[in-house]
Design a protein around this nucleic acid. Structure first.
Lengths: 112, 112
DNA sequence: ACCACGTGTCGATGGATGTCCACATGTGGG
DNA sequence: CCCACATGTGGACATCCATCGACACGTGGT
């Protein structure tokens, strides 16, 4: 679990990878070419390398169709581990911050 | 906003810094020495450097008292930006994943 | 005034990594 | 079978950064 968390934050530390994730979150599924077309200032091989990182880190899934490879978010993968980590930190911190500052609504919540 | 997000994920990419944040989330406020005592395998100057990063990135707050410096989580700072980023990605992705897999309860929620 | 203590800062160094180019691999069409 | 297309891979290069030791700075006590 902590290993996935490490992989996730390590992958999330790069701006290009975050843009890829945002694009996948918005469109659901995209081919490498479509992703590379949406990310400027970097070449295709760079995008390919980043997709490799995202794949081996458990952030995205790969689906092969013909000569294309379609990528999509793995919402049950490492992204969630990173999310849970931040959620845990914020939850614990908010109790302390609320007692010190008297805040009431923060916007963070959990399911159960 | 996107700049804070960059700062946040950049800061969160390091394992030592995540441990520091976890410790602060658990104890609310700690001095540098207390933090360094809880993080093994790294020296105090390293912890100090990490705290500098966390501070300039807007993840923690600093309070000076005598010759000690106490650090605590800044729950309204960049951590929240990172949280919101993941939340946004997961929310958009879940709609797509739910339609494809038929999932119902995931554990992610938002306040409104 | 002096000294111990808690932290921050600077410079050096080794390791990790983002980026690209050239090439390899696999796929579909004629 | 050959060629165009989509994508992955390996090597080279530059850059960033985590780590540490030595030193500086401020604070409190005596």
């Amino acid at each position: 679990m902590e290993q996935n968390e490490t992989l996730a934050f390590d992958a999330l530390s790069d701006r290009v990878r975050r843009r890829i994730l945002a694009a996948l979150g918005e469109h659901g599924e995209l081919s490498v070419g479509e992703i590379a077309g949406r990310i400027d200032a970097v070449g295709r091989t760079t995008v390919s390398s980043h997709l490799r990182v995202l794949r081996t880190s458990g952030l995205v899934r790969e689906r092969r169709d013909g000569r294309n490879r379609f990528y999509s978010l793995d919402t049950d993968g490492a992204v969630r581990d990173a999310f849970v980590f931040l959620q845990s930190i914020l939850r614990q911190g908010i109790t302390d911050a609320a007692a010190a500052a008297g805040e009431s609504s923060g916007g963070v919540q959990e399911t159960g």
